[in-house]
Design a protein around this nucleic acid. Sequence first.
DNA 1: TTGTATGCGTTATCAT
DNA 2: ATGATAACGCATACAA
Lengths: 333, 333
Amino acid sequence: MKKRTTLADIAKAANVSMMTVSRVINNKPGVTNQTRKHILDLIKEMEYQPNAIARSLVTNKTKTIGLVVPDITNPFFAQIARGVEDAAYEHEYTILLINTNEELEREMNALDSLWQKDIDGIILCSSRLPELKLSAQIQRFPATVLLNREVLEPLPNLVSINVNDQRGVQRAIQHFVEIGRKNIAFLGGPNTSFSSQRRFVGYQTALKTAQIAYDENLVVFNQPNTEGGYKATSALLSKKSTIDAIFAFNDLMAIGAIQACQQAGHRVPEEIAIIGVDDIPLSSIFHPRLTTLHVNLQQTGRLATRTLLDIIGNEALPATYQIEFELITRESA
Amino acid sequence: MKKRTTLADIAKAANVSMMTVSRVINNKPGVTNQTRKHILDLIKEMEYQPNAIARSLVTNKTKTIGLVVPDITNPFFAQIARGVEDAAYEHEYTILLINTNEELEREMNALDSLWQKDIDGIILCSSRLPELKLSAQIQRFPATVLLNREVLEPLPNLVSINVNDQRGVQRAIQHFVEIGRKNIAFLGGPNTSFSSQRRFVGYQTALKTAQIAYDENLVVFNQPNTEGGYKATSALLSKKSTIDAIFAFNDLMAIGAIQACQQAGHRVPEEIAIIGVDDIPLSSIFHPRLTTLHVNLQQTGRLATRTLLDIIGNEALPATYQIEFELITRESA
DNA sequence: TTGTATGCGTTATCAT
DNA sequence: ATGATAACGCATACAA
């Protein structure tokens, strides 16, 4: 590992001052084409690449944004991360990725370490921080985009992007109603999850709209995976045999629900229709193919970084965006 | 966004020099407990956190490592990334994540931008770079771990970690033989993939060991997804009706293969046994549950960063590690 | 135990 | 059009 070539090296080799080299590198005027070309040649020849650290120290910009997610292993966040990074790459920004594992302490540490690294902004996904701490953190950073989490008071330099859970669920329930279902169960996820809470509200609202009475016996919460879906549905089926539709918190739960139904001798969708959320790859492979609520996560990730860059460039208003679900109708409902 | 508190601010407030503050921050001796406590209090009070950029400029260490993957959306790399980040977090390192999308230019750009940011080391996954460029790149960085890719000449500051594809496949084929299968087909992935190549070699070797003649009509390559598996298997079945076992490049192809078999009227595993690779979540849900080659990816990711940190700390030898697959026997074989 | 001077590699500012 | 100097925030080396 040889020593880095520096601005000074180039300047010496070209018999000019560091400043003219700097001007060339940053495409700034004030240098003749002749010397510019000469310097450019030397830069190639000596394989010079600017030291971003030194540059950041003086410009106060790092061309780096922090991406904080609960778990990159979750396809939901992986998709978002991909979109975030793609857009960042196009603007020559780079991503610092941190998993919080849904632990408060780790999230705080993440934010601290990002702050120390002087990043230009953060994209914070599904933050579990209490309102006060969250808004305090946000105010430390030059720019932040909140994904899947809102904050009560509007803050400058903040925009939050949320998937419209309520409307999504309402669309699903409406679909159930349209195909003649009346006893619609709700399989909720972890109650620490804001999405789960919002979807529950959407469920209740949609029932009201459809003039169907709310029955708490039709609501169960469990883990957001196939096992949770299976257990929840089994429990449901044992106390309520009239169920003809199930809305599940996500596709994995929906698949667990299907398995539970089939095992209990109910055909899907003929006797019990089922709708999930996420449109994971599996949902178009599994049989019966899953009807599900879909949102283009990668595109959402792109939107997040574009928005963040807008904030950084002072071209954004404090706001909150709502992304709409699309109902993908396949076989299960 | 208020201005950052700096070392100088604390020094002034404490009526000491910046150095004693610096000593306190870095837990270095040479300061009385009294003044240390006083300074510590001020640091808390004024919410001082060191500026990592400035620190890096002088120490030449960034406490940051670069993680380059083809696509974080691929669960394979997501798992690895999680392990990498977890271990990094434990050592107070931070991860710069870059996707290459399997494009050479993007991989080169990734490496350049990481180099400019002066990171302490890189973990490079499934690099597509030609030998020469790759080894040139590696020599620029203080430390590098190669995942799923080898380089011919050993380099100082480099260790590569590979999953032992050959041995894994051999184990799978051996299993087929043990359950009495003789006409074993091979479903390969993209031929740009080193793993696919190595698995093909493993397949041929295993056949030789089992004294089964190699038949090129039993080998097909296709895309590494369900569709590819389906197409490849359909093609296979139409020209070879005696097939009684299929080894697939990955679980998705294996699932496509199962669907093709069933559609052609062959029962799995009774008539055709199938083994995949990766042990994706789906493989234990799909019916018949998939027999597959498994490796703990998250643990592998952890190993990668631990190894990288060893190299950085000059406590590692140039080497290549081989991680062994484990055959998870479920229903499909 | 504490402090001073210097430098890391770059850009900003003000000269020439 | 080009250059000299200071500054970014910190740590290293050496003094006191």
